[in-house]
Amino acid sequence: MKALLRRILDVCEMPLIQKCATATSFTEQEVTNIIDDLTLIAKSHITSLSSRYRYAPRDSHAVRGAVLTLFDDCFLAFDEGMNDARQ
Rank of each mutant, 00 (worst) to 15 (best):
L70Y: 10
I34A: 06
E80M: 12
S25E: 11
R52Q: 09
D73L: 11
Q18N: 04
S44A: 10
L16V: 11
A62P: 01
R7H: 05
I17M: 02
L70A: 03
A23W: 15
L9F: 13
Y53N: 01
N83H: 06
N33M: 11
A77I: 10
A23N: 09
K19G: 06
R52Y: 12
D36N: 08
Y53I: 00
A77Q: 11
C12A: 07
L38G: 03
R58N: 05
T32N: 10
Q87Y: 09
N83W: 02
K19A: 15
T47G: 01
L49T: 01
H61I: 15
N33S: 13
V67H: 05
I17R: 01
E80W: 12
M1T: 12
I17P: 01
S50H: 15
P57G: 01
D79V: 14
A3V: 12
N33R: 12
Y55Q: 01
L16Y: 06
M1Y: 14
E80Q: 08
D79Y: 11
F78H: 02
D59E: 14
E30K: 07
L16F: 06
R52N: 09
L16W: 09
L49I: 12
S60V: 13
F26I: 10
A21P: 00
R58L: 13
V63T: 13
P15R: 03
T69W: 05
Y53F: 11
R7A: 04
E13M: 06
S51T: 14
D59P: 03
D72I: 02
L4S: 04
D72N: 07
L76I: 07
N33E: 15
F26W: 15
C20E: 13
D10C: 05
A3C: 01
D79T: 12
A62K: 10
L70R: 10
R86V: 02
Q87E: 02
H45Y: 15
T24R: 11
S48A: 05
D79R: 05
S60N: 07
Q29M: 03
T32P: 02
Q29H: 08
R64A: 12
T69L: 10
R58S: 09
D59L: 04
I8E: 04
T24C: 03
L4I: 15
F26G: 03
R6Y: 13
P57R: 13
L9D: 06
A3R: 14
D59V: 09
D37N: 05
M14F: 04
V31E: 15
S44G: 08
I8S: 02
L16C: 05
S25P: 03
Q29I: 06
E30T: 04
L9V: 07
R58Y: 15
V11C: 04
V63F: 08
A85N: 10
L76K: 11
D36Q: 05
N33D: 14
L38N: 09
D36H: 00
F71M: 08
E13A: 04
R86Y: 00
E13P: 00
L68S: 06
I34H: 03
P15E: 03
